[in-house]
Simulated assay, not measured.
Amino acid sequence: MPPVAAHAPGAMSRRARFRGYMARMAAAADPTLAIEQQMYVPPPRALAEVLVRHLEIEPAGRHLVVGGIGSGKTTQLLLATQALNSMPDMCAAYIDVSRKRDLVKLKPGCLVALAGLALLEHLPTAPEGGKGFASWANGYACEPWELEYDDGQFVTVDGVVTPPEPAWPEIDAHWVQQLSFFAEQLHRNGRSFVALFDSLDRSSNREGFAQLVEQDIAALHRCQIGVVLIGPIRSLEGFGRLEVDRFDRLHMQAPVDIERDPAGREFLFRVLRARAEESLLPDAAVHACVAASGGVLRDLISIARAAGDETYLAGADQIAPDHVAAAVDDFGRSMMVGLRPTDIATLKHLRGGGGFVWTSDDDVTLVATRRILHYPGPPARYQVHPAIASLLDQKAS
């Protein structure tokens, strides 16, 4: 299609309409921006409300949140943080671990350090030991001789009564005690602290994540600090269940089951309607986007945005189901990239009515990357993502 002439009647207004539409859909990539622009639509049984209610009566609770990519976990953590900070006896910090720490280099003490730095910002005055804790957390410069120790001066002789090792053997006990001291100062002021950790579901360092869950969560609990942590889907299966056992509660942030949940379908409809008026995105196109999304919030908005792009390139003024279909086809093909023959065989088996059981890391990856959608139910069920279902059917034929 040739570019629209700048002097053509209505050219700029049409361009402005679509620019605004694309910007509102792009805002979904930044949950903070979507909340600030009042485009947030509360889902049925919002996770943020559930977390806040639990933490209101048990401020030092430990909560693990698990869900696929794009299911809205970050948005719910941000809203929970806002709600907790609005209470006079609570304070909370949203911590995006990926912005503070290389997720490949996770090691025991990371969460203790990040929680401590965030807690220090909530204290009215700088506490004793605060600078030392910050130096331990962030690192510091010193002379080489300051790091030299003479370990041969003393020999430890165990007594008859040997105290048990702490549950965080690889974290310096001194800094855990310091954090406990900071939290106690906050408690004296009548407030409890909750740390909400995001992004750990994206870590490929399985051993590092397991160590954090085993040691840091125990240390934070010892300090009477509440924890909400977004973890990987693999925590639900196999040895990952040991990670779940370190928490008081497990919360699933799953896709909306658009086939069996009318309230969920209405929620997804309202998500798009909050971002686009009917004159540009008619109801028929909204319903087509909802059906193709499989109930995944991020996919819903991505498909709607791509449909707007298709519409503008086609020279149309209104998004039609055909434009949505073209966007879904492109979206599905991008999801097929990287699939191996064994993955495709698994997807075809499920698509053909066969069952699905998580028995390998490859199976977990199919769920984590949304090629297979997990609806917890009850009853729980699995489904191939609608955007790739038709492409699989084409391969079969």
Rank of each mutant, 00 (worst) to 15 (best):
P379N: 08
G377Q: 09
A288R: 00
V213I: 15
H323C: 07
A26F: 07
Q153C: 03
A380M: 13
I230M: 15
A263N: 10
P166A: 00
A27W: 01
H187W: 03
L200S: 00
S293T: 08
R191V: 07
N189S: 15
G295Q: 04
P163H: 06
L281K: 01
D198Q: 12
M1S: 13
G72M: 03
V364P: 08
L200D: 08
Q224Y: 04
E310Y: 03
Q211L: 14
I230G: 04
G308L: 09
E237K: 02
G20I: 09
P163F: 07
G355V: 14
A320C: 09
V97M: 09
S360M: 03
M87L: 15
T311F: 00
P44N: 10
P42T: 11
P3Y: 03
A118D: 10
G61Y: 02
M25G: 00
D158L: 15
G338K: 11
N85F: 06
G240P: 04
T156F: 09
G67I: 04
A291N: 04
A92K: 01
G190C: 14
I258C: 03
Q82K: 13
D248F: 01
D245V: 03
P59A: 10
E170K: 13
V66S: 02
E49P: 02
L147I: 08
L366M: 07
A173T: 07
H54K: 09
V213T: 01
P88I: 10
A113Y: 12
N189R: 15
P376L: 04
L64N: 00
A327D: 11
R15T: 14
R24M: 10
L268F: 02
K107M: 08
V65H: 05
E237V: 15
A288F: 01
G10H: 09
K105I: 04
L220K: 00
D343P: 00
L200Y: 08
H385I: 10
G130R: 11
A34R: 05
P321D: 11
L280F: 02
A83D: 06
D198N: 05
A291Y: 01
G208Q: 02
L117S: 14
P164Q: 14
D317L: 11
H63N: 03
D30S: 14
L242T: 13
I372N: 00
H349A: 12
